[in-house]
């Protein structure tokens, strides 16, 4: 299968402070937030990459860079073989229909003053794909496909529950028949029971339509059911990337192990060896030298301070950025 999305060495740095007139007169330099610092991965057609990490690790910024809602500082993003990382909005617009998004907050992702039907019809209208009755039928089809009723198209967002709104967001993302949907924590704001429904819906849609997903989440439990591959991010870097089985059965990076130990087990008799990480995630303005995880790592050694571990192949399709990945395995 060919890759629908290839991200190479994606870097996004934000400058904070030092940009105002007075700062410049005083010669103050801006400090740089290394939100995303060299991230590479690819997603094959019809597959799902789960992108996991703590808040502030840059996972959402990766998604937003791919969508070009933020300008990537460096690196390339290839969508279906075409580099979109620095093209102008005019060039990008026709390509956007292959690349859609579902956001985390179902309450903020729909315009409160437009009917949900208008919202779902918007992407179709933009590309002149359909109009009149055809457009109306397409919107009603989309509503039924995501588990809503066709007669609900004329209602306003505030008449729906969180889960229903997220379904509307999914319908909007599906409207242009995209090849890839970025799911930016699509279920984090929902109740657990509703989370399962929405994830099942996404799985069904993928089977039916062959869409690839980039599923951004902050816990592995959510990702487990939907992903074919998983990438774990820590402080702007991918620390481990592999297919789902390898990640869940033989994690090699101590951070992945810690995350996995936090996933609740359905077996009450299982021994829960929970690895609790100490301290907070360091500031991305001033990341630790060497391995970024060393300040919280249970197995850190002197080499971790001096040398940054590269993302190295540990097994088939399994890459880990840790000096001790081989020994640990």
């Amino acid at each position: 299968m060919s890759d629908i999305l290839v991200v190479k060495d994606l870097v996004k740095h934000y400058e904070i402070g030092g940009t105002g007139i007075i700062d410049r007169m005083l010669g103050q330099k801006a400090s740089v937030v290394r939100s995303v610092d060299g991230v590479s991965f690819s997603i094959a057609e019809g597959e799902t990459l789960g992108l996991v990490g703590e808040s502030g690790c840059g996972k959402s910024t990766v998604g937003r860079s791919i969508l070009r809602l933020v300008e990537p500082t460096k690196g390339t993003i290839e969508l279906a073989g075409q580099d979109i990382s620095h093209v102008s909005e005019q060039v990008l617009r026709p390509l956007r229909k292959h690349l859609q998004v579902v956001f985390q907050d179902p309450f903020a992702s729909l315009n409160p003053r437009r009917t949900v039907g208008q919202t779902v019809a918007e992407p179709i209208g933009n590309y002149g794909l359909k109009s009149g009755d055809e457009l109306k039928n397409r919107v009603q089809d989309l509503f039924e496909r995501v588990g809503l009723r066709a007669d609900q198209v004329d209602r306003f967002p505030h008449e729906f529950s969180g889960g229903q709104r997220q379904r509307i967001g999914i319908a909007r993302a599906l409207a242009t028949n995209p090849k890839l949907i970025i799911l930016d924590e699509p279920v984090s704001a929902l109740d657990v029971s509703v989370q399962a429904q929405v994830i099942n819906l996404l799985v069904d849609l993928q089977k039916e339509l062959g869409i690839a997903y980039l599923f951004i989440a902050h816990d592995l439990a959510v990702v487990e059911h939907i992903s074919t591959h998983v990438a774990v991010m820590y402080l702007g870097k991918v620390v481990e990337i592999a297919d789902k089985k390898s990640i869940f059965n033989s994690p090699k990076h101590p951070y992945t192990k810690a995350l996995l130990s936090a996933v609740p087990n359905s077996d009450p008799d299982a021994i829960n060896n929970r690895i609790v990480l100490k301290g907070d995630i360091p500031s991305p303005t001033n990341p630790p030298s060497g391995c970024r995880f060393r300040t919280r790592c249970p197995i850190a050694q002197p080499i971790c301070t001096s040398e940054e571990p590269a993302l190295e192949v540990q097994g088939p399709g399994h890459k880990t950025a840790c000096h001790f990945a081989k020994e640990e395995a």
């Binding site: 809602l69 026709p94 229909k97 859609q100 998004v101 992407p123 933009n126 909007r172």
Partner: peptide
């Protein structure tokens, strides 16, 4: 942002 990605 959704409208931007929708090509509006």
């Amino acid at each position: 942002e959704a409208a931007i990605t929708a090509g509006t």
